[in-house]
Design a binder for these strands. Structure first.
Lengths: 172, 172
DNA sequence: ATGAGAAAGTCACATATGAGACTATCTAAA
DNA sequence: TTTAGATAGTCTCATATGTGACTTTCTCAT
């Protein structure tokens, strides 16, 4: 591993790529590690920025994302597909309701469940941060051709559908 | 989205796959989201288990993984490739040293840097948890053929090498 | 050489998170 | 029915984490 550092915040891309390849090859869990590496750089800075600027926590961000494409979802479903613990999602939902960003109704068929719905304010807040996430995903993927992207997403779909086979739900 | 729940902790795989596909397709950042979904199920339960059973934190786990394949690495390099904040890695290193799992020497060429080295105890601890991570990665990938796995890793390599082009180091 | 600015690492404080107990409700089997 | 066990969601407490300030050391342009 070369130890000379780049001059600016933006590293010299050429050297960066070399070092990256050098370092990433070494662990015993290469694929999981590389996924984590790429995803961390996508997600962490974006989410921290949203947290700071909009004053919401990660479970709240995730809850808004879920609600935006599927209203009436319940807390436990958000847990199931987001990987967040139910205590945190619960706190997030309570906070979002307090800020009037969502509304909850008890499910008529099951009094334990609460169906969640975005308010206009919630939808507006979501609209405030999603463009940056979309743009950053585009940048992340810009090194792949259209067909490579399709291929990559296809493999991810396969992996995602396989998740229930090797993991137990109660692990969350 | 179907709302009927599975009977046991292990969901019915068939239904699970359907719901997964159903839910994952909906966000506006599909690929990033799917990566997160798969990775969360790989990483979170594993890491929490290690944290609990071995009494170490996530930055400590990551530091041991790095040191195991490359001794003499510095804290800031671990940050750069792990995505953890330097304050947390710093705390992790201090804790690991206190437990005599690593040793640090000031770099002769740069007195600000500390080169890190595993102790035998540190190596032994690493050896305790890495097999489970390896096995879980194997399970995660078992739905892909050998050639699909190669393909997937190749695409990940491309994405990883591209990271320095769209992200700024100081974002961590 | 020297002074401005960057980098490595540490610290203190506030906040977010994980673990696990708890209530209320539902389900299914005797 | 009744009851044991599962599920949805909330709460409390301890701990881990993010932020930003700080010290020390290095780099590089003047």
């Amino acid at each position: 591993m070369r130890l000379s550092k780049k001059g600016a915040a933006k590293p010299d891309p050429k050297e960066g790529a070399d070092r990256t390849k050098d370092v990433l090859g070494g662990t015993e869990i290469r694929i999981a590690y590389k996924m984590g590496y790429v995803l961390n750089f996508y997600r962490e800075p974006s989410f921290r920025k949203i947290e700071m600027e909009l004053g919401i926590t990660r479970p709240e961000i995730v809850t808004l994302i879920f609600l935006n494409f599927r209203e009436g979802v319940t807390a436990s479903e958000i847990c199931e597909f987001s990987g967040h613990l139910k205590a945190n999602i619960s706190r997030g939902i309570i906070a979002l309701e307090k800020k009037k960003l969502l509304r909850r109704d008890v499910d008529k068929n099951d009094n334990r469940r609460q169906r969640l719905y975005l308010t206009p304010a919630g939808r507006a807040l979501y609209a405030k941060y999603i463009p940056a996430l979309r743009e950053r995903e585009r940048a992340m993927l810009s090194c792949l051709s259209a067909s490579e992207r399709k291929l990559f997403e296809g493999l991810l779909d396969k992996l995602a559908e396989h998740v229930p086979h090797w993991t137990a739900l109660d692990e969350l």
